[in-house]
Computed example of a mutant assay.
Amino acid sequence: MDLANMRQNGVRSIDVHCSDCSHHAIKNLDNFPGHLAVKSFERRMRCTQCGSRRIDVRPNWLEKPAMPSLTGVRFPKG
């Protein structure tokens, strides 16, 4: 997935997770061109807590806007 496709899905940031200490952060990527792959940011990142380079990067799907139900039926929460 590249940044242009991620943005088409309503997501503008990535979730950066350290494999060594489990620290995670959200990084906004509005300043980067759309042709860059999301996974290309893994080698650019370093954990700010432990300094590790073992980083996992994924789109921050939690910011994706809710889509309307195709059937009009909503499942109750809980």
Score class of each variant (00 low, 15 high):
51 G>F: 01
33 P>F: 00
52 S>H: 01
12 R>K: 13
63 E>A: 07
63 E>F: 08
21 C>Q: 11
20 D>E: 14
55 I>Y: 02
30 D>Q: 09
46 R>T: 09
2 D>I: 04
58 R>H: 05
19 S>N: 11
11 V>K: 02
27 K>N: 07
65 P>I: 01
40 S>L: 00
18 C>N: 02
25 A>Q: 03
5 N>T: 14
61 W>R: 09
52 S>V: 02
58 R>N: 12
5 N>Q: 15
57 V>L: 05
76 P>R: 02
68 P>L: 10
62 L>C: 08
9 N>P: 00
50 C>E: 00
58 R>W: 11
45 M>A: 08
70 L>M: 04
61 W>T: 12
52 S>T: 05
15 D>W: 09
67 M>T: 04
47 C>T: 01
22 S>Q: 09
69 S>E: 01
19 S>V: 06
34 G>L: 02
32 F>E: 07
45 M>W: 00
28 N>L: 14
5 N>Y: 14
62 L>A: 07
69 S>A: 05
17 H>F: 08
3 L>M: 10
75 F>M: 13
76 P>Q: 10
54 R>S: 15
21 C>L: 14
7 R>P: 04
22 S>P: 00
2 D>W: 02
76 P>E: 15
31 N>C: 13
27 K>M: 15
63 E>R: 05
45 M>R: 06
61 W>C: 08
56 D>A: 05
48 T>C: 14
40 S>W: 01
36 L>A: 03
37 A>H: 04
63 E>K: 01
47 C>D: 02
13 S>L: 12
78 G>P: 13
20 D>R: 07
54 R>C: 05
34 G>Q: 03
3 L>G: 11
15 D>L: 10
73 V>P: 01
5 N>R: 14
68 P>W: 03
